[in-house]
Every structure is written in structure tokens, then in C-alpha cells.
């Protein structure tokens, strides 16, 4: 086990290096990146001064080493607009984004598993067909469009849910204010429902299809036939024998799922004016505030890699077959 963890850790380090290299090279794709760091009206002297200050006059390999050095010190440059450290801006907004991502994940999984099982058990019936058709639609919708439609029809016309706004949960938690977080929860959820559905529907649909096909696979296995012929109730067969094994491909997907939802956040936060990293990134895009975009990409990637590492380790703990590979 220890060996496995060490190997996965090393792999993650390599991947993070790869991501930083890509992100670094991207910045240089269009030539001299100095122009991203100065305002449009900057004078020639100012440009030269900035170039030297940021080290863009040095050879590329040296620049990359400096970039990685800055990264290790938690320095990802300074926002052009607000003059604050880019990483600080990202971290400030991170709790709101995580709330949304986890909520979307919760919606996705808590709905996908039951409807996937129902579709598999009732294979070929109208229920199965209906669920699969819905899943097909869910996978074909641009999420931000769904968000806009929810705002117009559920938010503005039916007035059921607020169309924008945010009540913090994670932030009071990090400040040790547990009671405040708990008190905030009901109102926070009202704000979370629509953006949560918007981000979660695609993966909900995909997971429902995954649960169904994985259940169908398992239900035809010998041990399920054995369980049935032992005279176990259908409920016991499905919950104890089939479902547990059907979960394996879903658990494998969880880590990737998180990253997927995280990238859905960028567009959805814009639609719902959610005060998270996604909206920070969109604003940074329109203002061409490159250091902020870069910081967000690096933080998101690092988080994604870390969570996948965590999932893999937990998973290896649960399923000894993985460790042997």
C-alpha cells in the first residue's frame, strides 16, 4: 500500500509539472507576454521596465524555472486590474465555487443512482425508456442554456427560487463559526438549487446511464443468479449483491466527475452571478487579466489532481485488486 501511494504521489508531481509547463508555454504562445501585464496606454519605457521586472527578457528555460519557483512560494503573479496577488483573489473565491461543485455532485449522484437502478430493473419498460430519453436530453443540453431557462421560467415567471445571490457555508466553517454555517444552510440551499441543477444535470444524465448499464452487466452475473436461486428476496439481491458491485465504475468516475463539474462552474457562475472563481475567470477573460486566469487554471488543476489522487488511494484501500496492479 505504501508503495502504491508513493508511486501515485510521484505520478501526481509529474502531472502537476506538466500542467505548469503547459500553462507557462500557453502564456508565450502569442509572443512576448509583457503586453498582457501592462495597460494598453503604457509607454515604451514602462513596457521595457515591466519586461525586465517580470523577467521576460531572460531565456525561456530560466523563465520556466522562475515560474515554478514562484509557484512553490505560492506566487502566481499580480492581477493587472486590482494589483492584488492573483492567487489571493482565487483563494478568496474558492469556497463559493466548492459549495456549488459539491452541491452539484450531490444532486447528480443522489438522483442518478436510484433512477439508474430503476431503469435497469425495469429494462425495456416505459419507465426505462422515459428515464433514458431524459438522460439523452440532459446530456445534449448546453448547461448555461439550461441555467438561463431556469432563471427565466422558474426564477422570473414562477418566482419559486432566487435567480442570483449566495449565502456562504464553507467560509464561516473555515473561521470556526459552526453555528453560523448551520444557520445559513437553509437559505444557502435555496440559492444553490438552480445553479446546482445547471451544473449537475449533464453528469446526472451520464451517471444514470452508467449506473443502468453497470447494473445490467452485474445482474447477468452468475453470483446474482445464485443469490436468486438461494431464495433471497429481490430487494436483497439487488441491494446487497448487484448494487454494490455495480458501484465500482461509478466510484472510479467520482474523481474525474469532480474535475468535470469544476469546469462547468466557469460558465454557470457567470449565468447566476455566483461570486466564485468561475466568475472571477470570466471577468478576467474580458479584462484580459492573464495572471488571474493562469492562477485559476493552476489552482483548479492542482485541486483536480489532488482529489483524483485521494479517490485512487481510498479506492485502493477498498478494493485490494487495484493495489496489485
Amino acid at each position: 500500500m505504501g508503495q502504491y501511494i508513493v508511486r501515485r504521489l510521484l505520478q501526481s508531481v509529474i502531472v502537476i509539472m506538466g500542467v505548469t509547463l503547459l500553462s507557462f508555454l500557453t502564456l508565450h504562445l502569442a509572443g512576448d507576454p509583457t503586453y498582457f501585464y501592462v495597460s494598453e496606454r503604457a509607454s515604451e519605457e514602462e513596457i521595457i521596465a515591466t519586461r525586465i521586472k517580470l523577467g521576460f527578457d531572460k531565456p525561456l528555460p530560466e523563465q520556466y524555472l522562475n515560474f515554478v519557483g514562484g509557484l512553490l512560494r505560492g506566487d502566481l503573479g499580480t492581477s493587472i486590474r486590482s494589483r492584488k496577488p492573483a492567487i489571493e483573489l482565487v483563494m478568496e473565491r474558492l469556497p463559493a465555487t466548492l459549495e456549488l461543485t459539491f452541491f452539484a455532485m450531490f444532486i447528480s449522484i443522489s438522483v442518478a443512482i436510484p433512477i439508474g437502478i430503476i431503469a435497469a430493473i425495469r429494462r425495456g419498460t416505459a419507465a426505462d425508456g422515459g428515464i433514458m430519453l431524459m438522460a439523452m436530453f440532459g446530456q445534449s443540453m448546453p448547461s448555461f442554456w439550461l441555467g438561463i431557462m431556469l432563471i427565466i421560467f422558474v426564477g422570473l415567471q414562477l418566482r419559486l427560487l432566487p435567480i442570483s445571490g449566495h449565502v456562504p457555508i464553507i467560509q464561516p466553517l473555515t473561521e470556526g463559526n459552526f453555528n453560523e454555517a448551520l444557520a445559513n444552510l437553509p437559505s444557502a440551499i435555496r440559492f444553490l438549487i438552480m445553479p446546482g441543477i445547471t451544473i449537475g444535470l449533464f453528469s446526472l444524465s451520464r451517471n444514470a446511464r452508467l449506473v443502468r448499464s453497470s447494473m445490467l452487466e452485474v445482474l447477468s452475473q452468475d453470483y446474482v443468479v445464485t443469490a436468486r436461486s438461494k431464495g433471497l428476496s429481490e430487494r436483497a439481491v439487488i441491494m446487497r449483491h448487484a448494487f454494490r458491485n455495480a458501484l465500482i465504475p461509478i466510484v472510479t468516475m467520482l474523481g474525474l466527475e469532480f474535475g468535470f463539474l469544476l469546469s462547468g462552474v466557469v460558465v454557470t457562475e457567470t449565468v447566476f452571478s455566483w461570486p466564485g472563481v468561475g466568475r472571477l475567470v470570466t471577468n478576467a477573460i474580458t479584462q484580459r487579466d492573464i495572471p488571474v486566469v493562469q492562477a485559476a487554471v493552476v489552482v483548479f488543476s492542482a485541486m483536480f489532481i489532488f482529489i483524483n489522487l485521494l479517490v485512487d488511494i481510498i479506492y485502493a484501500q477498498l478494493d485490494p485488486r487495484i493495489r496489485l496492479r
Binding site: V15, G18, V19, G259, S263, I285, V297, F300, F304, I305
Partner: peptide, 9 residues
């Protein structure tokens, strides 16, 4: 190992 849409952006 990381969400590609971010790099695309």
C-alpha cells in the same frame, strides 16, 4: 489529469 476546458480558455 486536468480539466481541458480550462487550458482551452
Amino acid at each position: 489529469a486536468f480539466p481541458f476546458i480550462l487550458l482551452a480558455i
